[in-house]
């Protein structure tokens, strides 16, 4: 009798867990197999993914002096970049 009771409890618990799983699957009804979509649909779903994570730069040192020197030169040029000169009116 006790074994019968324990097996009933076990079966009922499994059924309850299964019910929860099914409910979750129905709720997440936008989970679709990618492979079954046409190529154009897969491209469309790709294009809908919003690439929006903000970046955070960390301080890193170039591995060689040659790279570091070029980057310093670039920074100098960017710092001193001037706007295009305006042509002067002839007197």
């Amino acid at each position: 009798m006790k074994q019968k009771h324990s097996s009933n409890y076990f079966v009922r618990s499994l059924l309850a867990t299964g019910a929860v799983l099914c409910t979750t699957a129905v709720w997440a009804d936008d989970v679709v197999p990618v492979a079954s979509l046409e190529v154009k649909d897969r491209i469309r779903t790709i294009d809908q993914i919003n690439v929006s994570a903000e970046t955070r730069q960390v301080a890193e040192t170039p591995s060689t002096a040659a790279v570091a020197a070029l980057l310093d030169e670039a920074e100098q040029l960017d710092t001193h970049a001037t706007p295009a000169p305006v042509a002067a009116d002839p007197e």
Binding site: Y9, F10, S13, L14, A16, T17, V20, L21, T24
Partner: peptide, 14 residues
């Protein structure tokens, strides 16, 4: 309590 224990374990795995 037995129901709760089994259900909790199942939900946790899911």
């Amino acid at each position: 309590a037995r129901y709760g224990a089994v259900l909790t374990v199942g939900l946790g795995i899911c």
